[in-house]
Design a protein around this nucleic acid. Structure first.
Lengths: 203, 203
DNA sequence: GGCATCTTGAACCATTCAGTTCAAGATAAG
DNA sequence: CTTATCTTGAACTGAATGGTTCAAGATGCC
């Protein structure tokens, strides 16, 4: 197993990502990473640098992969904004329901652990949350919501989406998680009904 | 400083609680606890047992203190359910706005870290989330909501409340946090308007 | 003063941590 | 086969971890 060949970087990154996702940064040792990736300690350091760099790669990978899914879900926001947000939530709900993946959300966890992460990683996690909100904001505006109303619902939907991570880790079942998003979808439906930006949302 | 006198247990517990709250269980060493409490290592072990026991005490303290505040906020739910839930959220919003306290929520953090906490602590954190939901459920029923609708809104409000912890750690400002809860309050107001349990909520 | 009680600091232990180094071995290309 | 490249396992370092023990000292009570 040497010579010119190389191990599968993507597979190793996926394994490391899931380990960080499940246990968090602090509770993941380099030995853990070595075990789940099947890579030797030396290989980890030579291929990815130190633990912090590997975590950054994993966070980036996570944000890219699921970011694309969220993006795709929101793609129909212009014509069917409610269905778009429903699909947005479905991305999270299906991920949580997948027994092959950890509960929660790597970005949410990293944001929660921000005070004890390296500044660059903490900033990246915060940016991911902000980016999610911006994505929603754009989609809701495209869906006909007034600028201010779209902003309000964007931050609300982003927050509720993060809350699913907490609740799933707290042992909430699928039915409860659906109830959480249904209230939000109902509120959004009403805001959308109130006209193409003419009516005001809450506040 | 010895003899019969003893250090102030409450003060020490508060300091330890805030440390756990800010940095989480994994990223808080016993030396950290010694530093912030002003207690010697020996004193910590003799007074509180090991790190796990002290964390449990802190979690209990947190749940008791803020649980009482949430309880008080919801006390008027029978007459003014919307105002009660608004006051419920205000407990969290004011706590987050307090510069003397860490962002986030110790219970939410502990729930997120459940997979790497000792089973007893993880269970306790999950119970705290469930208890919050039960409290809201009872309050909303008292406020006139139908059983099922009350259950739906209870889990939603509990989730949104947890989301404030994530969002505050992710750098959201007070205005954004208010927007998050306003959407929920608006939805709840509508559900309450629809009659004393006669009408159905979302779903 | 004398005694009992508590605190304190320091030392200690075994374990784990991140990070580094290196020799041995395996492979592919020439 | 030879050579260059890469992987691997193992050892090692220095620091930090949780946890324990104990002698010295400070205090309050009698």
């Amino acid at each position: 197993m040497a010579g010119r060949k190389q191990f599968d970087t993507d597979t190793a990154l996926d394994a490391a990502m899931i380990q960080f996702w499940r246990a968090g940064y602090a509770d993941t040792s380099v030995d853990d990473l070595s075990r789940v990736t099947g890579l030797n300690r030396s290989s980890i350091y030579s291929s990815f640098g130190d633990k912090d760099a590997l975590f950054t790669r994993c966070l980036e990978r996570y944000a890219t992969r699921y970011g694309a899914e969220y993006e795709a879900a929101l793609s129909c926001a212009g014509e069917r904004p409610l269905a778009a947000v429903r699909a947005f939530f479905a991305v999270t709900l299906e991920r949580v329901a997948d027994p092959g993946l950890p509960d929660g959300c790597l970005v949410a966890q990293s944001a929660m652990a921000a005070p004890v992460l390296s500044p660059s990683v903490a900033t990246r996690a915060r940016e991911a949350v902000g980016f999610q909100r911006a994505r929603l904001h754009a989609a809701l505006k495209a869906g006909g919501l007034h600028e201010e109303t779209a902003g309000t619902y964007a931050v609300h939907v982003a927050a509720v989406n993060q809350s699913l991570a907490v609740m799933s880790r707290a042992g909430a079942d699928a039915e409860q998680l659906h109830a959480v998003v249904d209230v939000t979808l109902d509120a959004l439906a009403r805001a959308l009904e109130m006209g193409n930006g003419a009516a005001r949302g809450p506040r």
